[in-house]
Amino acid sequence: MAGNREFFYRRLHSLLGVIPVGLFLVQHLVVNHFATRGPEAFNRAAHFMENLPFRYFLEIFVIFLPLLFHAIYGLYIAFTAKNNVSRYNYFRNWMFMLQRLSGIITLIFVTWHVWETRVQAAFGAEVNYEMMANIVDNPMMLGFYVLGIISTVFHFSNGLWSFFVSWGITVTPRSQQISTYVTMAIFVALSIVGIRAILAFA
């Protein structure tokens, strides 16, 4: 593998974005959706997740380490690009730019979100419906969360499209086109799930 570091890191970055980070995102949005069934339903679901066996192991190896690598290497990728959508006004070039932009917005959002919830929980706060309701009580924060959720879901969905290309699954233009439709449908569907959940706290 000597001399192949860049190839390895790029592929690892692509893989980790989907497995496990992407899967965790979907799970997280689905669990949050319990909020639409009322505070009690959400608290029960959150409590269940909180009491999963091997919680710290799962958090470290399924969430934090992969997320940290994906974020840091992703920043490097984002800042080595020289965006040129004004000169090359093509759909995929826009998606290329938006993937990098949404990655940066998502990183800011997720950092803030982890600080506000998981880190506060480590300091002794209880993560429940009330905590989120207090956060999004502020319309500014609600707006920030809506933007953050849409950005995160876009980054995941469009990243899924790139994942299929990067691993050589979608090769023909036709399969890449269909993949665009499918991943954008995922973007819309997951956005609805995420926005419904956050609005349930507001």
Partner: peptide, 12 residues
Amino acid sequence: DGGLANCGNSQN
């Protein structure tokens, strides 16, 4: 280094 994996799929 600098190879295939650097493609970002802008498709320009």
